[in-house]
Every structure is written in structure tokens, then in C-alpha cells.
Simulated scan of single mutants.
Amino acid sequence: MASNLTSVIIGAKGKHTATVVFLHGLGDSGHGWSFLASELGSVFPHIKWILPNAPEKPITLNGGFRMPAWFDLTGLDKSSLADEDEKGMLSSLASVNKVIQAEVDSGIPSERIIVGGFSQGGVMALLTGLTSERKFGGIIACSTWLGMAEKMKTMGAEANKKTPILMCHGDADPVVRYQFGEESANKLKSYGYSVNFKTYPGMPHSACPDEIQEIAMFIKKYVSDA
């Protein structure tokens, strides 16, 4: 059952014509990515930023300790990532879709919405964007991997087969290995998706100014001021 998520919301500084929904990583909150809206808000005064907060869940990787999470993780090696908490992913998917539905109901066309995320949030951004029957403006996935990768070939909705996808990853990421991001991008390309995979030399599991600039260019290209 989809839960109602709380969100950090940063309103458009001008006339609101587009929205970015950005999902944080494990153990974080929407506030952790509010810097993105702070840095880009003046560049894109027409954009409203929605930064949902994940519910607290017990995380196997951390000894069952409860923390904000979109789904459970048993580890961060390849076999652990393949042992997926599909139930948790699909539950969070339903909750994120409620956030998006509310935005559409408020008058913003789905084509003017970009869904993005970092790490676990990036998994959810890809899952949300690729399975939605609504056409999105774009999908941004940072320092992350493709969840339910083998199933995505059939789970993917026709609406977003041609939606542009920006994937960003640092080649010094000690948490979500660069190889996993690269393999995920190639998997999506093999399914026929339009993926731009950007590498950031020396970047760990975080963000950097060049990546923020790339995100800004992506936003400008696909949901510029109407």
C-alpha cells in the first residue's frame, strides 16, 4: 500500500511551469539534496523542487538498524545488489507515484516533470521513470544502478521509451561501484533507451560542480522555461 510521503518543497521563484522530483539516498532526507535547488533555483525560476523523504526501514546491510530508505539492502557487492528487495522497491514506487500524481493534478503536465535521484534514490528514479504510463520530461540517475534490471525489459512502459536519461557516476565511488553504473547504462541502451552516461574522474559517492552543471544543462534542454 502506497504511503503518503512528506517532502521538502522549494517553490518556483517565478511562474511555476515545471517540476523536478529528486529522491535522496540511503540514510538521508530531502534536506540533503536541497542544495541542488538552492544552486539552480535562480537559474530556473520556473521550476518547483520536490525532495521527498523516504520512510524509515530496517536495513539488513546495517544490522537491521532503522533509517530512511526506499528499500532494504543486504550488501553493496554485485550478488547482494542482485538479491533485491522488490517488494520494498514497488512499495516506494507507489508512494513516489502519488507525489507525481499530486503534481499533475495541480496542473503541471507530466512532460514538464523530471524525476531524478541519487544512489538508492537513483534506483527509484529509474524505476519510476521507466515504468510510468505518463511521459516525463527526463530522468536523472546519479551514482546508482538499475534495479530489477532483467525485468525492466518487459516492465518498461511505452510512454518513456524515448525519454532522455542522464546517468552520472564518479569513477572513484567506493559505495556503488562505477562498474555497476556503467553496466546499468549499457543494459538500458541494449533495451533501446536513450542514455547519456557521464563519468567524473576522482569523484567518490557524492556530487561535484561539474555534475551539477551537467544536470543544469539537462534541465535546460528538456524543461526550459515555457
Rank of each mutant, 00 (worst) to 15 (best):
M1E: 13
S7Y: 00
I9T: 12
A12G: 10
K13W: 00
G14K: 01
V20H: 02
F22W: 04
F22I: 03
L23G: 00
H24G: 06
H24Y: 02
G41T: 00
L61F: 14
G64P: 02
F65I: 04
R66L: 09
W70D: 01
W70A: 03
F71Y: 11
D72E: 07
G75E: 08
L76T: 08
D77F: 06
K78G: 01
K78S: 11
L81D: 00
D83F: 05
L93A: 00
L93S: 00
S95A: 12
V96R: 10
P109F: 07
I114P: 03
I114D: 05
I114G: 11
G116T: 10
Q120F: 01
L130W: 09
R134V: 07
G137T: 09
G137V: 13
G137L: 13
G138V: 11
I139N: 04
S143V: 03
T144S: 14
L146P: 07
G147C: 09
E150N: 07
A157S: 14
A157F: 11
A157V: 11
A159K: 11
P164N: 14
I165F: 03
G170E: 00
D173M: 07
P174K: 10
R177T: 15
Y178N: 01
G181F: 06
K187A: 14
K189A: 15
S194Y: 09
N196L: 12
K198Q: 14
P201Q: 14
M203A: 10
I212D: 10
I212A: 10
Q213E: 15
E214Y: 04
I215S: 00
I219V: 15
K220Q: 14
K221C: 09
